[in-house]
Design a protein around this nucleic acid. Structure first.
Length: 427
RNA sequence: GUGGAUGUAGCUCAGUCGGUUAGAGCACCAGGUUGUGGCCCUGGGGGUCGGGGGUUCGAGUCCCCUCAUUCACCCCA
C-alpha cells in the first residue's frame, strides 16, 4: 500500500542529529562520492595504496603526539568502553596511520611506504561555517624518506587532487619550521623579541608566548609586532635550508605554484621542517583547504623505529564548497520504465533485465496510473519506456523522450533494447 | 571556551501598534474520462509560530532562561 499522505502526521521529533554534524543528501552526497573516487584514482596514479584504520584508537595514540595540540587536548571525543579501555574518536589521520605503520611492521616493507586514506574525523569544536564536529578527510602519508623529493611528491599529489577536481591554480604556501637542531634557537629568539612587547600583544599571544611561541607568527591581531619579528629563515641550519630550497625548486620544476609564507606554522606538535597549506579565497580568510607537513619524529614517538615521514590532509567539505558548481555530480542517462495498467509485473521484470545489462532505470513501486508514472518520470529522468498494450504483444515497447515529446516503438528483446539504450562507445 | 545575529509549513519567507480561526510561493498528493508528463485549472494534506517560564483580559509579536542555527574569534580540514 502506498502511504496515505492525506493523513500524514506532523513532523514532531527531538531526534535530531548531533550538533556540528550533517546529513548529506543527493546531490551533495553524490558530489562527495565522486570526489572520493577522484581522490582514490589520483592517489593510485601516484603509487599510493589505500589504508583503512579504525575510526577510534587508544587515546594514547593521539596524546603521545599532541601534547600542546588543541585538536587532541581540548577537542577530543573520548570514552571508556565496558572493558575500561580509554578510546578516542580520531581527530586527524596521521597519528593513526603512523601507529598502523609501526604495528604492521611496514618499516620492513620496501621503502618509502605510500599510503592514503579517506574517512571521517571528529573534533569537538564550536561549529561554524565549514567547520564540523565530524568531517571527511582525504589524506596521504609517505614514510621512509627524508629527501626533499618526498615532500614535493606529497605536495604534488595533494594539488593534483584539487586541480583535477577543478580548483584553478592552487598555490601552495610553504615554510620550514626547522629541525631539533635549529628550531630551539629560533624559538628562543622569538621569545626574546616578543617578551618586551608583552603588554602590547593580544591576550591569546601572551598565552602563546609561553605555550607555543611559533604560533605568535600566525596571529591575525598583532600584525605590526610581527613585521619586525625574526624570520626563521635566518636561523635554519644548513641542512634545513638546503632541504627547503630543494623542495621548492622541485615543485617549481613541475609547473605548480609555490610560495614561501614566513608566518606559516601549523597546529600539530609533530611537524618538523616542511609545513604547507593551500587556502582558497572563496573559503574566507582563515580557512585552510588542506595542509600538511613533515614529521620525522612521529613514528619513533609511537614506539617505532626512527623513520621520517611526510603527509597531508584535505577537508572534503571545504574542497567541495570551494569548487561549488564547477564540481557537480555526474549521472549517466537513466530510463523510467512505465507500465500500462495490468503490465506492472512485465515492466518490473524488464527493468531487471535491463539493469543486468548495465542500463540505469527506475520502475514504479506504487502501482500508479500510467499518467502518474509519467509525471513521476518527468522529475527523475528525461526518457521513458512504456510497457504494455498492443506494442508489447508485438514484441515492442515505446521509447519516449520527454524533452522533445518524440516517441518510437522499439524491440523489447532485452539484449537489443539494452544496446539501443546504452550504445557501446564508438572507437 | 569568547562575542554578535537569527529561529513561523518539507523549503524560501510574509505576518502592521500585542487583538478573531496564523498566510503566500515552491514542493507533495488527488482530480480535470477509460494508454502519455511538463503548462494551466480545481481540490487536498501538512504548523503545539524552536522549547520552557513570565507580563497581559489577550502573546507568533514584549521580557527572562534554554536549545539550535549562523557569523566572527580560538583552533583547524
Amino acid at each position: 500500500m502506498s502511504p496515505n499522505l492525506k493523513e500524514r502526521t506532523p513532523l514532531r521529533t527531538d531526534l535530531k542529529r548531533p550538533r556540528g554534524t550533517q546529513d548529506l543528501l543527493a546531490p551533495e552526497s553524490l558530489r562527495l562520492e565522486r570526489l572520493r573516487r577522484l581522490a582514490f584514482d589520483t592517489a593510485r596514479e601516484y603509487g599510493f595504496d589505500p589504508i583503512e584504520t579504525p575510526i577510534f584508537e587508544q587515546s594514547a595514540v593521539f596524546l603521545k603526539v599532541g601534547e600542546s595540540t588543541d585538536v587532541v587536548q581540548h577537542e577530543r571525543y573520548t570514552f571508556t568502553d565496558v572493558g575500561g579501555v580509554d578510546l578516542t574518536l580520531r581527530p586527524e589521520g596521521t597519528a593513526a596511520i603512523a601507529r598502523a605503520y609501526v604495528e604492521n611492521g611496514l618499516f620492513n616493507a620496501p621503502q618509502p611506504v605510500r599510503l592514503f586514506y579517506w574517512g571521517p574525523m571528529f573534533r569537538r569544536e564550536r561549529p561554524q561555517a565549514l567547520r564540523y564536529r565530524q568531517h571527511t578527510q582525504f589524506g596521504a602519508e609517505l614514510f621512509g624518506s627524508e629527501e626533499p623529493s618526498a615532500d614535493a611528491e606529497i605536495m604534488l599529489l595533494s594539488t593534483a587532487v584539487v586541480a583535477k577536481a577543478g580548483l584553478v591554480d592552487p598555490v601552495i604556501r610553504v615554510n620550514s619550521i626547522g629541525c631539533s637542531l635549529c628550531r630551539p634557537t629560533y624559538r628562543a629568539a622569538l621569545v626574546e623579541y616578543y617578551q618586551p612587547l608583552r603588554d602590547e600583544i593580544c591576550e591569546d599571544c601572551q598565552r602563546r608566548l609561553t605555550q607555543n611561541p611559533l604560533r605568535l607568527l600566525d596571529c591575525k591581531v598583532d600584525q605590526p609586532a610581527r613585521e619586525q619579528a625574526p624570520d626563521i629563515a635566518q636561523y635554519w641550519c644548513d641542512d634545513c635550508r638546503q632541504h627547503f630550497e630543494t623542495v621548492v625548486s622541485m615543485v617549481q620544476s613541475t609547473g605548480r605554484a609555490i610560495d614561501r609564507d614566513p608566518y606559516l606554522v601549523r597546529g600539530f606538535d609533530y611537524y618538523t621542517r616542511t609545513v604547507f597549506e593551500v587556502g582558497h579565497p572563496e573559503l574566507g580568510t582563515n580557512v585552510a583547504l588542506f595542509g600538511g607537513g613533515r614529521y620525522d619524529g612521529l613514528v619513533a614517538s609511537l614506539d617505532g623505529p626512527s623513520v621520517p615521514g611526510v603527509g597531508f590532509g584535505i577537508g572534503s567539505e571545504r574542497l567541495l564548497s570551494a569548487l561549488g558548481e564547477r564540481f557537480m555530480a555526474v549521472s549517466s542517462p537513466s530510463y523510467y520504465v512505465a507500465a500500462v495498467p495490468g503490465h506492472h509485473q512485465a515492466a518490473f521484470a524488464l527493468v531487471e533485465e535491463l539493469r543486468r545489462r548495465g542500463v540505469t532505470c527506475y520502475v514504479d513501486l506504487l502501482s500508479r496510473s500510467l499518467k502518474a508514472q509519467i509525471r513521476d518520470a518527468n522529475r527523475r529522468s528525461d526518457r521513458v519506456i512504456i510497457v504494455g498494450g498492443r506494442e508489447w504483444d508485438q514484441g515492442l515497447v515505446t521509447l519516449k523522450y520527454l524533452n522533445t515529446g518524440e516517441q518510437e516503438a522499439v524491440s523489447r528483446e532485452p539484449d537489443q533494447l539494452a544496446r539501443r539504450l546504452n550504445p557501446a562507445p564508438t572507437a
